[in-house]
Nucleic acid binder design. Structure first.
Lengths: 198, 198
DNA sequence: CCCTTCGTGAGACAGAAGTATCACGAAGAT
DNA sequence: ATCTTCGTGATACTTCTGTCTCACGAAGGG
């Protein structure tokens, strides 16, 4: 049935691209800003996105993030090294783009409050890195342990750890990074210990 | 020189209380709503708070949370038990009031983006619980280890862990809680191991 | 008890969010 | 080639945010 799919796709992309350009310029875009930058009517933008926060959310989702390949290229097969490589890659990005990350997080929470959160609509980026980190060891871990490690790491690697350490506890960045590394390492220890016991 | 301190205090409290009542009624209050509920002028409310999010933030801060005493009353001196007690108390509250917690978090992030975040303006609640959990063992841990454990736990116990597990990774609540407990336990293991080495 | 100070109320105003309506014109079908 | 469908532009309107001004009146000092 899908009518005028390409046209809609082009419009949607144009909106998100316009928003990205505005974000790069450092402005906090309103719907009007995005509409003007994209060269289209306010009404059209509203047909695609409910709120400015949602456009920003999609624009940030499309932004360049570190690549999984480059991250693990220098890493050996050791679980500990690979996890630390993942921590470094993701948290370098997160802590280095704190402002944009917070804006993105604002969108995530708003989606949840609106009830407009849709599970399938974006893959969780960090999980690609975590899974790659676990890939060499996955066979050696009980599946329950692998599951706990996967999502335990997801708590310590990512935007939420930034919010907890920097924004809430008001640690400085070096301190925060030291702690996230320590947490990741502790989770690896525990996962390996769980594996031994079985 | 503080003039009319009590009057200002009364007005401020009236605003926050009005906001709490509205939140209890399930509405997402606007400034107008709060002003009407508090029986005062919009202008007055604006004199005390920059945005609706900030009123909500303060109202949520004042809401009843579990008490430190009750939480640790049944716990022994064992670090592991005390940490798990803290995890249960805080995360029971967090996961049980997810909606309000998300709204609160919205305010926290917005403060950070606005540059209006003020470190001293609220104590970080979870740290009171974490410190009470560590209190019996603190002498046995190197200070660097205690520091890492304190803030490592702060990542796993609290609103941000809810955001990471439920909202971002879309785990169900039981799964999420199992993982936060496992993370806390792993951090305790690692802290005790660090202490041994020294 | 008076008088200054200052918190408050009332209302105007601008900007942005968000909704609704209608006409236009290009995409897709026959 | 013609007709229908539907995405878009334009525009008006409502609500909320956030700022500002000015007059009132009670608190607190003399």
């Amino acid at each position: 049935m899908a009518t005028r799919v390409k046209q809609k796709e082009r419009t949607r992309t144009a909106i998100v691209d316009a928003c990205e350009r505005l974000l790069d310029r450092g402005v906090d875009p309103t719907i009007d800003d995005v509409a003007e930058e994209a060269g289209m009517s306010r009404a059209t933008v509203y047909r695609y996105f409910d709120s400015p926060a949602m456009i920003v959310w999609h624009a940030m989702s499309d932004k360049a993030t570190p690549s999984v390949e480059e991250t693990f290229e220098p890493a050996g097969p050791e679980l500990r090294d690979r996890v630390i490589a993942a921590e470094r890659a993701i948290n370098d990005y997160i802590f280095g783009n704190a402002h944009g990350v917070r804006r993105f997080q604002l969108g995530t929470i708003q989606r949840e409050l609106d009830g407009t959160a849709t599970p399938e609509d974006r893959p969780v980026r960090r999980l690609a890195f975590i899974d790659e980190a676990l890939s060499t060891t996955l066979g050696d871990l009980p599946s329950a342990t692998a599951h706990r490690l996967r999502y335990g790491l997801a708590i310590a690697i990512g935007a939420e750890a930034l919010l907890a350490t920097i924004d809430t506890c008001r640690l400085d960045e070096d301190d925060a990074r030291d702690i996230t590394r320590w947490v990741c390492d502790a989770l690896v220890d525990r996962a390996l210990a769980d594996a031994q016991e079985t």
